[in-house]
C-alpha cells in the first residue's frame, strides 16, 4: 500500500520473529499486572488506612511510566534489530524491579506495623 506521497511506507524492522512486537506486548502485560495489583492494594484501605494510597500510587505511576515509554522502547528495539546491534535496557529493567521491591517492602510494613 502506498502512503499519501506515493512512497511505500518503510518498515521499522524486518525481523520475521517479530521480536520488538513480542517484547512490547510483554511490557504491556506487565503494565496491566501492575494496574491490577494497584487495585488489589485498595482493599487494604479499610484495614490499614490512607497510607495504603502510597502503594497504590507507586503501582499506578510505574504502570503509567511503562505506558508512556512504550513507543520509545519499541522504536529503539526495532532500530536495534535492523542495525543488528543494541545495548541492554538498563533503565526500564532496573526501575521496574526497584518499584516492585519497594512495593514489597511497603507491603510488609503495612502488614507488620500498621493496624
Amino acid at each position: 500500500m502506498a502512503s499519501d506521497g506515493g512512497q511505500p511506507p518503510t518498515r521499522l524492522h524486518s525481523d520475521p520473529g517479530l521480536q520488538p512486537e513480542r517484547t512490547s506486548l510483554a511490557w504491556g502485560r506487565t503494565m496491566l499486572a501492575l494496574a491490577t495489583v494497584s487495585t488489589i492494594f485498595l482493599r487494604w484501605i479499610e484495614q490499614h488506612g490512607l497510607f495504603v494510597l502510597t502503594l497504590w500510587g507507586i503501582s499506578c505511576l510505574t504502570a503509567a511510566a511503562i505506558f508512556v515509554t512504550q513507543r520509545t522502547r519499541y522504536t529503539r528495539h526495532g532500530e536495534g534489530i535492523s542495525r543488528g546491534l543494541m545495548g541492554p535496557n538498563f533503565r526500564s529493567v532496573l526501575w521496574t524491579a526497584s518499584a516492585v521491591l519497594v512495593l514489597g517492602m511497603l507491603g510488609i510494613y503495612v502488614v507488620a506495623i500498621t493496624r
Binding site: 517484547t23 528495539h77 534489530i81 543488528g84 546491534l85 541492554p88 535496557n89 516492585v100
Partner: peptide
C-alpha cells in the same frame, strides 16, 4: 539483539510472577 530482547522478556515474566 534478539538474545537481548529474549532476556528482557524473561525478566518481565519473572516480574509478573513477583
Amino acid at each position: 539483539p534478539r538474545f537481548t530482547l529474549a532476556n528482557e522478556r524473561t525478566f518481565l515474566a519473572w516480574i509478573r510472577t513477583s
